[in-house]
């Protein structure tokens, strides 16, 4: 991980607005400001997915942080951009010049990697609190990736919940009318015997 001063390096995952990319970077604070470079080298032999595609690999910013969570940065060309950030749990939310970006520390997790997260990733979770309107699948049924499996209502709107990957419904954990919290398991999915390639 990076330090506040001096040299640093780390891996982060960009989750918003474009999701899922892990990138490795190095940072240094020098006289000219804060220098950041994307590290395009492979991680453990697995190529970084378009880590530096189309992006400059290095940038130097003059960062002026007026208070915690806010600041102004200047590019080498002298253009100034306002920014603000806040941690939302494990997510770093960054507002920059009118756009929102969300990052997580990658902590060694690889995109497309298996292990640990597999069963959790296969289950269907409630994206936000609300009420279950309909469960469209039954236990033992096979579902396709992106298939609509549950309809919820939240904030006066219907939410269509889709399966993030294909599998067999091992358990239906909710019933219509039930109130659910954010993150509550709606369906347990047993992955089919396939390479868990998402």
């Amino acid at each position: 991980m990076t330090q506040g001063q001096g040299q640093g390096h780390g891996e982060m995952r960009e989750t918003y607005p474009s999701a899922g990319e892990v990138y490795r970077y190095r940072t240094a604070e020098g006289e000219s400001g804060f220098t950041f470079s994307l590290d395009g080298a492979p991680l453990d032999g697995a190529p970084l997915e378009s880590a530096a595609a189309g992006l400059e690999s290095a940038i130097t910013l003059d960062i002026e942080s007026r208070e915690t969570g806010e600041g102004l940065c200047r590019t080498a060309s002298g253009r100034a951009y306002a920014f603000a950030w806040a941690w939302v749990g494990a997510e770093l939310h960054l507002w920059l010049d009118g756009d929102l970006f969300v990052f997580q520390r990658a902590e060694g997790r690889r995109r497309g990697g298996a292990a640990g997260g597999e069963s959790a990733a296969a289950d269907v979770l409630a994206p936000m609190p609300g009420a279950v309107l309909e469960v469209l699948v039954a236990e033992g049924e096979r579902v396709e990736r992106n298939q609509t499996v549950v309809i919820m209502e939240s904030m006066k709107m219907e939410l269509v919940i889709t399966a993030a990957r294909g599998g067999i419904v091992r358990r239906v954990a909710v019933q219509p009318g039930q109130q659910v919290e954010r993150g509550m398991r709606l369906l347990e999915l047993a992955p089919e015997n396939e390479s868990g390639n998402d």
Partner: peptide, 8 residues
């Protein structure tokens, strides 16, 4: 720039 600021 966003990635750089996030790292920072």
């Amino acid at each position: 720039m966003a990635r750089a600021l996030a790292a920072w």
